[in-house]
Design a protein around this nucleic acid. Structure first.
Lengths: 217, 217
DNA sequence: ACCCATTAACTGACCAGACAGTCATTTAAT
DNA sequence: ATTAAATGACTGTCTGGTCAGTTAATGGGT
């Protein structure tokens, strides 16, 4: 027993059957898991597939994570928060018009979240919220509500400056965010069955409509 | 074997252990399945739980549907299309301003889809698109794209009337729809961990922003 | 009105397959 | 020679689907 046929595609060309790569494993595992959990859902994703995609065996997964659920936790908790911190800092130190800050924020978020693999996180968290209520609560409080608060701040700055007309802050923030979340979710679900569309134009038109709406109210 | 303890809560008060209800079963099964599939996802939802929620035994499920997957198919194919037909008829026979038609369309959709249990369908289809590519394709072509075409038509009417300024039709349609889909998805995922919000105000502000954006471009 | 034969809706114990997680063994690295 | 990273066959459990048996409903005969 123990014969070998899988030409491990990961670092092909090596003569040895496998390499010790203690440092690189966790991130590779999380990447593989993010992709599979997003595509199939947590429950339908198989640990053996995660292992294969990460270029290791099933047993090795359990050297780095206690369980399937532990991988899911790590995904949600490690991948988004760093990005959020950067944006919060940016808003805290910003000086200028609210309109420009809003434009910048939306474009930054677009480039660093919606266009990258991070866009998978919202779709995953939305799909699995029913099975992981505690994580969903963590995510809602520590990502969603904090992001929303950021946009509320920008809006309030604009109202204070006389740039924007006042109206319900939270509703405005939700309307600003909705098309971005939707773009992320779409990208990882029905987009592959739909026409392509010009995502940049989508973002720009959204910004234009929102700015016009906020100003002219 | 065969002793009894479950006081079947479904039609309590009856002395018999169960009733023959051939006509009512399919819809009750679909309702139960929609709720569970939406909450847990297709894979994590157990047939026994669907059966219990529908007030029947597991075996009875298989008198009405061939498999778990058949229930999923029936859900997607039977629940949304009738609503879509109504709306398509309305647009085909409409006479009046594009602005008023757009307002009416959004409000109608809001009341008949977003506010009802039908709102679960988009969240479910988005979550499961990776596991049911054929159904996802069907849904995308027969629901999403048809709905989008409807909004494109309204927009084109507005452009022809001189009510709206011209710009990319499909992008506009996507931006009009995004906050509604987002509201539906949210309702069935992270909303229970988030603050409540005034959904009616959300819809009304969205309509206002969109109309202003389309007019003033 | 009652009984009993027949039908078919319904049940739930059971089965076969699948999968998360384990661990004795193998092998890279030092 | 020693350490520890990595493996994959194995196991216990869980669940979709089945089917032999149970029971509600029906209606024809007395």
């Amino acid at each position: 027993m123990g014969f070998f046929m899988s030409l491990s595609s990961h670092t092909s060309g090596s003569s040895s059957r496998w390499k010790r790569r203690k440092e690189a494993r966790p991130e590779e595992i999380l990447d593989a898991a993010l992709e599979l959990f997003t595509e199939k859902g947590f429950s339908a994703a198989r640990m053996m597939d995660v292992a294969r995609k990460a270029g290791i065996s099933k047993g090795t997964l359990y050297l780095y994570f206690d369980s399937k659920e532990a991988i899911f936790h790590a995904l949600i908790q490690q991948m988004i928060l760093p990005e959020l911190h950067k944006v919060e800092d940016r808003v805290a130190h910003y000086e200028g018009t609210a309109e420009n800050l809003l434009r910048e924020l939306l474009m930054t978020w677009w480039d660093t979240v919606i266009k990258t693999r991070l866009s998978a996180i919202p779709k995953l968290m939305i799909s699995e919220s029913g099975n992981f209520p505690e994580l969903a609560e963590f995510f809602t409080h520590n990502v969603v509500q904090r992001a929303r608060k950021l946009y509320i701040k920008v809006f309030e700055l604009g109202v204070k400056n006389g740039e924007f007309k006042d109206c319900d802050h939270e509703i405005v923030a939700r309307l600003i965010i909705a098309p971005l979340i939707q773009a992320a979710v779409w990208k990882h679900s029905l987009a592959r069955f739909d026409h392509d569309y010009d995502m940049q134009a989508y973002l720009e038109l959204h910004i234009e409509f929102i700015i016009k709406g906020l100003k002219g109210k």
